[in-house]
Computed example of a mutant assay.
Amino acid sequence: MLDRRSLGAAAFGAIALSAVASGTSIAEATSDHRWNPMPDPATTPVPNPPLPKNLTREERAHLKTFDELDFDVFTHAKWDRLGESHAQHVRVHWPDGHYTDGIDKHIEDLAALFVWAPDTRILSHPLRLATNELTAVTGVMQGTFTRPMPDGKGGFIQPTGRKYAINMATVGIWNRRGTMDEEFLFWDNQTFYQQIGLA
């Protein structure tokens, strides 16, 4: 039995290994059986691949729901639809190590990105894996720092006008109702702040 709270960053690697072990061979992608790494998705557009083979109906549904979450709900700030992918009690782990509980707090945090970068979007999922109740998806989050950013102390950081495009990964733990009970978000904050001119 999995301890759902102890998965963390190791879940992403475990899912990748599981996909390879179950017969989704990397070598199948090339005719000469050599590894052809993809370019950096944040700097070179990578098309969204088809869903992996041999998924169960539930695994396929989780990945399709996640695509809809990022490509439509998040990208167009349709917060009234976040419940389609997130449980009301969802725990969300952020890249800086803190976590939040509950969908309302998660909506508040996501909406805060759009205050200073209203064109924030995710349009690409270069890698998508699923096994049982776990999904691991990589994406590219991008936008432009065009409006004042609250500094958390009552003031604002003036916009730099700089664009950002960062690679990210999300590991989700899904329940039987088809929503995530827990979500782990990963990206490099240093790269993020450098790109928007704050580091």
Rank of each mutant, 00 (worst) to 15 (best):
G178K: 03
Q142G: 07
A77K: 10
D151L: 06
H106Q: 11
D104M: 11
P159D: 13
R4N: 00
L198M: 07
H98A: 13
F66A: 01
D40K: 00
A29N: 13
F184C: 01
L51M: 11
W174C: 05
K105R: 13
P150N: 01
G139A: 07
P118Q: 00
L127F: 15
P37V: 05
E58R: 07
N54G: 15
I166W: 03
H98F: 11
I107S: 08
P126N: 00
A130L: 03
W79F: 14
P45R: 04
N175Y: 01
R5V: 04
A112D: 14
G197W: 03
E28I: 07
A11Q: 02
L17E: 15
G23T: 07
D70S: 12
Q88E: 15
A87T: 04
K153E: 08
K64L: 15
T56F: 08
L134P: 01
T146K: 07
H33R: 14
V90Q: 02
P159K: 10
W116K: 00
T144E: 09
F74P: 08
V137R: 01
T65K: 11
A112C: 12
G8E: 13
R34L: 14
N175W: 01
R128A: 11
I107N: 02
T65Q: 09
S22R: 15
A10D: 08
G8Q: 10
D72W: 09
G155D: 01
V90K: 01
A16R: 07
T100N: 13
T131D: 14
D119A: 10
N189T: 09
A14H: 03
P41Y: 05
S6A: 14
V20N: 00
T100V: 09
K53Q: 07
D70P: 08
G143C: 08
S6I: 04
W116S: 05
H106V: 12
A169V: 11
A16N: 10
I173F: 01
S18P: 02
D119W: 05
L113D: 13
A130R: 01
E133S: 08
N48I: 14
V92K: 02
R177D: 15
A9W: 13
